[in-house]
């Protein structure tokens, strides 16, 4: 059953996955790279990884569904994570999340129709001193208020 479904995976991706063969314990990094390339984990890509790394497909799926980082569905261009850590919780984190949801007209875990934003659940972001905090892609925003949320969301391309 070689490469049954891998026709529309590009050559560059396949090459990257093959390089992982050299290293032990590469499944998670391979999935992380896949997600960087495609934005999520397409089934064909997971199947390909399973063949190349010689790991049962069921196990690839098991790993992909275990870790919070991995998505099996595509997501928006920007990912918003509103911290739900203790400090943020006591300093109004839930209100911030609600505000983001209200502005984007989606719930946590969903993607806007124009594929611009997704909201993802997250545990503590580790910037508790600045609670409440949210992270958009790699950038962290602290000491949030509803107004700041407005400004920040508006300023994003």
């Amino acid at each position: 059953m070689t490469n049954r479904n891998s026709n529309h995976l590009d050559i560059k991706f396949k090459k990257m996955m093959e390089d992982y063969k050299e290293h032990k314990g590469s499944l998670i990094p391979a999935l992380q790279t896949t997600q960087e390339v495609y934005g999520y984990l397409p089934k064909e890509a997971m199947e390909y990884i399973s063949q190349v790394l010689e790991i049962p497909f069921s196990e690839v799926f098991g790993v992909a569904t275990f870790y919070a980082q991995f998505r099996l569905q595509p997501r928006g261009k920007h990912v918003i994570k509103v911290c739900s850590g203790t400090a943020c919780h006591v300093r109004g984190g839930p209100h911030i999340l609600k505000e983001v949801e209200k502005q984007l007209h989606i719930k946590s875990g969903e993607t806007t129709n124009d594929n611009k934003f997704s909201i993802e659940p997250v545990a503590c972001l580790g910037a508790c001193g600045l609670a409440p905090v949210m992270m958009i892609d790699e950038e962290t925003f602290g000491r949030l208020t509803k107004e700041r949320v407005h400004q920040i969301l508006d300023s994003i391309e």
Partner: peptide
């Protein structure tokens, strides 16, 4: 892996 909510010493 510092996962405790509220902890950021290791970071």
């Amino acid at each position: 892996d510092e996962g405790d909510p509220g902890a950021f010493m290791d970071r």
